[in-house]
Design a binder for these strands. Structure first.
Lengths: 210, 210, 210, 210
DNA sequence: AATGAATGAGGATTCATTCAT
DNA sequence: TATGAATGAATCCTCATTCAT
């Protein structure tokens, strides 16, 4: 109908469902969200959801897939830059930290007891979803892992066990999920400031003095 | 924390229920766990649960309460020591990190979308529980906050915004919840080693070179 | 039966729908078949069905109507012949038995808990359909009844209670519906042989030695 | 509580559910019956059903199992007798024909598009159920098959293809399912008379003149 | 003539909770 | 102290049907 619809005709309706789902999952968790909740959030009925997604699990899967896409999109530019490991990590970390604060709904779905909730659909679907998800996550982590490894090799980072450091870095950057919520009345640069401090602490954890 | 708790850490039967519940909540999340699951885990029926806890929410509340007790017990000795902020934080952090790996079941319950699941019981109960839980958590965080503040004042820690640093520290120490699972065949000192590295990175994040 | 039916046995599109419906009803029963199933069977969507039939019930009704037409067409030539009751019954029975094996899809719809499934549409429609169906069936049975009565009168058949014999004869001839399924690799005359044996047993049941 | 319950304590409640289910399945078919229907039939709620049967399919399976038990019980005495094939078949046939009229509810479930409705439960359950059912049915048919074979060998029966004759015999004896319904005002010996005539026709179909 | 989107009613299933024992 | 039976509300999902195009 409108320009937006015209530009992404195939995506408008499903995206509306995805957004509503992500939002509800954030508020109440996956298991605590009923499809009626999601439908109500859109001002529609369950039928609309089932028209696009054949089960609650598939909906979760789609939300997670999109969340991963968002995450990759956020850090890829920095990852592709020509910087050295310290500056590259700083840029990636900053982008990721900001991304976590901006796209909370999708990110929460990504971290909501993820391993467990894939119960619907048939066994084959579940396995495919899980595999796809694990593989995406591994690919994402590998981007950080590569930079950490490069900095470890060059002596820029002080890292004892790479995988522990990787987990620590990512956990720290993700941490806002559990304690930060955007507020209408906060200063404009709040998110930037939080991101900067998290990034500095992250680098500090790797032995980089700033 | 109080005398009663310390002296009678819960009779056998209720503790069996709590353990079973914590274990199930860890595996499937609170919302994904049915009371039948918990009962089956004990080799009993739901009646046993209802004999000691009057609702599912209350059970969750009890599991969380016990988790908090465990957490306080873990860091209190270090907190009460006479060390300076750096060594005191190191000791507390190490104790907490180890605690997170040893008591996963109870800790997972503590972090499972905590704010949301308190739906049963009457309004008054809910408010009491939430208040009690928030207050416990604040008290726990305050122990870390005090040490951070002391180190910030003395110049031992480089901290810009105290609350951000506090969140970062605790998140990092909690992080094993999401990625570490004890394995029968791992070297005996695995948990100690992980704890040590996490503590070092934590101190590094606060500008302490090690 | 009437000229219209004989001359325009249904246009192509509606017949395609009917065939698909009959096939699905055979496979999964009426209640177990969704209109999506039928549509998928045609490689189309539900709209096509609704274009020709205004409800699922009406579709069933149409399938049954066509099944009855097929049945009448099968036995009418033999019925109209000048033979005596034994030979006439033999010819009708053989034709009907063969017909049941050849047109299984439509025949199954006819015998699928027929009385029950007429739920859609308005009351008037339902009553009309039921009445029409019962009347068709009675007319069909009456053709057999007439021959049995003639043979009973002439002493050619040993029949105690006519209606019981009628039910027995028709049930026996219909029986292949429950146990016979055409197979690609069966000898060409399999159906003919089954029909012959069923007919002989039917006549035997009426006291005709063959 | 009462004597009946005391005598069959483990069975009373489940049997009530089974009877209600059989009755509903007869009236509306399996797919057309909702568990609410069954519950209402008992003056209870669905919970009662699920307390004893874990799915609708399992309920159907249980009804069928019981129906087969009834069928075996009906013909076994005659089968175990010392009679020759003609008299043995006559006795078995009579018992089975009467059984079909007396236990319509359970028998209908047995013949209601049986192959199709096993959709619930997991694949393993389904396969077990189907296998168990097919095996029971085969065992039941084999009892008739043995008598037919004996009579065929001795020349007492004129049978061309044994399996066709077997199907015909059983179909004929089952036929009352489709056309007979007990009525309060029918003469007392109606069922006996129908059974006798069906048996005579069955024997006639096998070339035995009576 | 046909499609895709959307709805709403109904149906299978789960589960916290109550109760008699 | 604990159990088994039963309930009813909630939840996932299906499907006949309508409608705009």
């Amino acid at each position: 109908m409108n320009a937006q619809t015209a530009l992404k005709p195939a995506k408008a309706a499903p995206k509306q469902v995805l957004d509503a789902a992500a939002s509800c999952f954030m508020e109440k968790g996956y298991a605590g969200t009923s499809l009626d909740d999601v439908a109500r959030h859109m001002g529609a009925t369950k039928g609309r959801i089932y028209h696009y997604f054949s089960s609650k699990s598939e909906l979760l899967h789609a939300v997670r897939k999109r969340a991963m896409e968002i995450n990759f999109a956020a850090i890829t530019p920095a990852f592709d830059s020509e910087e050295g490991p310290v500056e590259k990590l700083r840029a990636m970390a900053r982008a990721h930290a900001l991304n976590m604060m901006r796209e909370q709904a999708y990110q929460q779905a990504l971290f909501d007891r993820l391993n467990l909730h894939i119960t619907g659909g048939n066994r084959a679907d579940r396995d495919v979803w899980r595999e796809e998800f694990m593989s995406d996550r591994r690919a994402f982590e590998d981007m950080f892992r590569a930079v950490l490894a490069e900095g470890q090799a060059s002596g820029a980072f002080k890292i004892r066990t790479l995988s522990y450091a990787l987990h620590a870095v990512i956990t720290m950057l993700n941490s806002t999920i559990s304690w930060y919520r955007p507020r209408a009345d906060e200063p404009e640069n709040t998110q930037a400031q939080i991101a900067d401090e998290l990034v500095n602490m992250t680098l500090g954890a790797l032995g980089v003095n700033t």
